[in-house]
Amino acid sequence: IVGGMDVPERKWPWQVSVHYAGIHICGGSIINEYWILSAAHCFQKEKSTEAFDMYVGLVDLNVAGSHTQWFEVNKVIIHPTYELYHPVGGDIALVQLKSRIVFSDSVLPVCIAPPDVNLQNVVCWATGWGVISQKGHTSDKLQEAQMPLISLLLCQMLYGGPSYIMSDMLCAGDIRNVKTVCEGDSGGPLVCEFNHTWLQVGVVSWGRGCTYPMFPAVYARVSYFSEWIHYHVEHTPLPLQPLPTRSSMLAATLSAPVTMLAFLLTL
């Protein structure tokens, strides 16, 4: 986030850090105890599902707090129109975790904007661990910034025509104060408050640079995809949980004293 501020703990409890091979590459949001919403381009075909990790309950990328949880990925579902009608169109992905998220004050789901959401006069915020300056500096602390929504028509004019900004996209950014999302924020949420409830209206997707105010950031429009999201969350079977076997139970009974011994040896 360029022009943002450090976030206090528990302020955005749905924020996810998507790691690939141990490095933060994208954001995401918790929508369900088994599901994360993110951007399709964070999960390019050449990337291996096994190398992804999802972190929730995190504010500082370098410090796992008492509320931090870590998850492996069971399945990634990319929207079927991704890259079909536009180089970054349909930029939305659903990530199913191998095990369930335990909710707490610091880890909670966000609501999905319905297809008929009215985005007039709402206050919206973007969050992420992406680039924070023109020089490409990053911050380990989660950043936030209030992002005014920009009408589709104005955004199309700024970018040079309707073929650049399609109906599955949404533009937002503080042009006057140069606040916007940047590299590394992709997949993260744009959320707005409606009657004390936070709805996710956008997924950070793309833009022409981060510091050219005339080119606001472009998000995947969540309301356009909400039925697809609901369909897959409701119809995709949960991951198979490994059943305890006689040998693994034996291993568990053995591993506890061994762990304890290792702990005592380190004292």
Partner: peptide, 27 residues
């Protein structure tokens, strides 16, 4: 799934947990 939020306020994808509420309020 139970949709615990009214449609106009967004949709919860959780059976037992209302979505979009946090325990602290921003400024």
């Amino acid at each position: 799934n139970a949709h615990r939020c009214p449609k106009s306020e967004g949709v919860s994808l959780n059976r037992d947990m209302a979505c979009g509420h946090r325990y602290i309020q921003g400024k």
